[in-house]
């Protein structure tokens, strides 16, 4: 978004960042969270993780405003004291930045607090580039990658150039753009289960574009989309490694890619 602070504006000594871990990363793939912590610390932030559950997006998008507000109020309280709040997800950061103010628009008590949290909440790569002024990361990874732009990060927060800029700073990484990288993967939260057949058709089309890029690794900034695409690729037997972009940027790729086993798989 255009109202992000310009490069370097926030570069004071050790900004105190609250990591908004997001429930998917918390539950499914904690290694993404540790990669985010490393990237933030390398950028000169001190990182803390307040106790948290879920930002309420599933309830919000299902029309349950009451539950969303309950959960949003908890989030607002949990992150009250931090200078910045950073999430390894455009969708979850977008929920706070764009939708919390809408959720409390009729509530004069909570609206200022919601606005305050919204204003200091960022998606990880945009925070690193736009706020901390990071231009390069100190990590190594060898090979070609292709990058999927997750919808909320792209269209609600303007995340597009930032992850590419950081990937470009890694000498071993070649970014191969796929066709329609900015087209939805068909995840859509509960949509993937409620409208399973439509979601399946959309991710099938996405998998074709991923495969056609001929890069051995697929990256994106949102775990929901990544699980959807990884699940489709493995169902089709396509040996493409799927990872959150933070893992590669932090050089933390010891964990097996999403949807693959630690031990060699038995046939």
């Amino acid at each position: 978004m255009s109202d992000l602070p310009s490069q370097g504006e926030g570069r004071r000594a050790k900004p105190r960042v609250g990591l908004f871990i997001t429930c998917l990363v918390d539950l499914m793939r904690p290694s993404v969270g540790f990669a985010a912590v490393k990237l933030l610390e390398d950028a000169g932030c001190s990182v803390e993780v307040p106790v948290q559950t879920c930002c309420g997006q599933p309830a919000y998008n299902s029309g349950d405003r009451g539950t969303s507000r309950d959960l949003a109020e908890r989030m607002i309280e949990a992150f009250r004291g931090f200078e910045y709040v950073v999430a390894p997800s455009g969708s979850c950061a977008g929920m706070v930045r764009k939708h919390y103010p809408e959720l409390f628009e009729d509530d004069p008590n909570w609206l200022p607090k919601a606005n305050a949290l919204a204003a200091k909440t960022y998606e990880l790569t945009s925070f690193l580039v736009d706020v901390m002024g990071v231009t390069a990361v100190n990590a190594s990874f060898d090979g070609a990658v292709t990058y999927h732009d997750s919808c909320s990060g792209l269209r609600e927060l303007g995340v597009k150039a930032q992850p590419r800029k950081l990937l470009a700073s890694m000498p071993g990484v070649t970014l191969v753009e796929m066709n329609d990288s900015d087209v939805c993967c068909g995840f859509g939260g509960t949509f993937a289960v409620k409208y399973s057949d439509i979601s399946g058709a959309i991710v099938e089309a996405k998998a074709k574009n991923i495969e056609a890029a001929q890069a051995p690794t697929l990256l994106a900034g949102d775990l929901g989309c990544l699980m959807n695409m990884a699940g489709r690729l493995s169902r089709e037997g396509k040996p493409i490694a799927v990872r959150h972009v933070a893992e590669v940027l932090a050089g933390m790729t010891d964990e097996p890619p999403i949807g693959t086993a630690k031990e060699p798989r038995s046939a």
């Binding site: 918390d26 499914m28 904690p30 540790f34 399946g200 086993a261």
Partner: peptide, 29 residues
């Protein structure tokens, strides 16, 4: 063992069209 589930009783809509990647096990928090 496989790093993913081809079928999950709670998420049949999901696993009809794609695998469900297994969690790493321990939560981040």
């Amino acid at each position: 063992r496989h790093g993913r589930f081809a079928w999950l009783p709670m998420a049949k809509g999901w696993t009809k069209h794609r695998d469900f990647p297994a969690p790493q096990g321990e939560t981040f928090q």
